Amino acid sequence: MKPKVSIVFSTYNNSECIEKCLESCLKQSYANVDVIIADDGSTDDTTLRIHRLARQADKRVRVLQLSHGERGIARVAAVQEAKQEAADYILIIDSDMILEEGMIDHLMDAVMNTEVGAYIIPEEAFTTYRNFFSKVKVFERNIINNAGEDVGKRSIEAARFWKMSEYISTGGFNAGQISFEEIQPTLRYLEKGGKVKRAVHTRLYHDEKKVLLRELLAKKAYYFTAMDRTLSSESGGFRKALERWYFFRPVLYRKDNIKRYMRHPLLFTGMIFMYGCLSFLGIYGIVKGRIARSNRFVQTEKIK
């Protein structure tokens, strides 16, 4: 029997993409793979679509029905289920991703008999929408993902394919974090000397869907309000965040990415504008969060 691989992801009201995602998981040719989905209380027909496909997949798909909470809680539940099912490896994806054919086979060939404990999988962003900021977001994500095979300490990418024992050694996701929880296990693993590589021989296709600037900023503003909690939950959290802040990411200054900026000046301008807006929101959110935490501390002291 080949080692067991569990593909795990959470989903919430994502009926637009869920079928393509799940179909790509079920089409994997690797012999011993299952899919664990934590549904975070979807109110549309997401779960209906999942169960319709799951009926055709025998016991390879398990759905955890959760009440709506934070994304991190659903992810932790899916990973915990994979642990209980004695998975040897886990592939952690998002429900708007599509796996390349033969991905699990490629990853298993790469990881066997190596000291690499986790792999970052390059993502190729795409969208079927033609509005400006949908194009900008796809351009930006493909710039970030053009980073070569080696993983630097200032990488912002999260490892998605793990030896289960190595993932457990990191402590896994912190369910209480609302922002940037996805990358924390990777950062902790690198800090303790773990080996992470980028799996340049395969890829994930990431559907960015329709991106409107106002909706993007509103979503990020929510995450940034919890940023102070995220920074305080990790040792050296503020330093780590600053090193990986939008304009400080080394991948942006790779020679071949600079050539892309020159070929697409309008999209590059849109990306810089988007980063400027997000940086302002981030600073505001961090300051607001620290003030709120300070006020709570003062009130607690008064009660004492």
Rank of each mutant, 00 (worst) to 15 (best):
G72C: 13
V76G: 00
L48W: 03
I73F: 10
R52T: 13
A87V: 06
A87N: 09
Q80R: 11
A82V: 03
E70F: 15
S42G: 02
L53E: 14
E81T: 10
L64S: 05
I93T: 12
L91M: 12
R52M: 04
R71L: 12
T43F: 14
Y30F: 15
G41F: 12
A86D: 09
I93P: 04
K83N: 07
Y89N: 10
H68P: 06
L64C: 01
E81W: 02
I37R: 12
A74I: 15
S42E: 01
V33R: 14
D94S: 03
R55H: 14
A78C: 02
R62Q: 13
N32V: 07
N32M: 11
A54Q: 05
G69E: 01
S95H: 07
A77Q: 05
V61F: 10
I73M: 05
Q65W: 01
R60F: 05
D34Q: 12
K59E: 14
A77K: 03
Q65C: 09
A86Y: 07
I37K: 09
V35S: 05
S95M: 02
D34V: 04
A31S: 15
D45M: 09
Y30T: 09
A74V: 08
D40W: 08
A77Y: 01
R60K: 15
V76W: 00
Q84V: 05
D39P: 03
D45S: 13
V63L: 15
R62A: 09
V76I: 04
G72I: 07
A77G: 05
V63Q: 07
I36A: 04
D58M: 07
D88C: 07
I73W: 06
Q84G: 11
S67D: 04
A78K: 00
I90M: 03
A77E: 09
G41V: 08
E81M: 13
E85K: 12
V33Y: 06
R71M: 13
V76E: 03
T46Q: 08
E85M: 11
I37F: 05
T43E: 15
K83D: 10
I36Y: 13
D39H: 10
A77T: 00
H68V: 06
H68F: 09
E81L: 10
I36P: 02
Q56H: 10
Q84S: 14
L48D: 15
E70C: 11
V63I: 15
D44A: 06
G41Y: 10
D40K: 02
I50R: 02
T47M: 14
K83Y: 09
A57Q: 05
S67E: 10
S42M: 07
K83R: 14
V79N: 01
V79W: 00
Y30H: 06
Y30D: 10
I93N: 03
A57M: 02
D88R: 05
S67T: 11
K59H: 14
R62D: 05
R49N: 08
T46N: 02
A74Y: 14
H51G: 01
D34A: 03
Q56I: 03
I90L: 04
L48P: 00
A86M: 05
I93Y: 03
D58S: 13
H68R: 15
Q56T: 13
D88G: 08
I92D: 00
L48V: 11
A86C: 09
L91W: 11
K83F: 05
N32K: 14
I37P: 04
E70W: 12
H51T: 10
I93W: 08
H51M: 12
L64V: 06
D44R: 10
L53G: 05
D34L: 06
K83G: 01
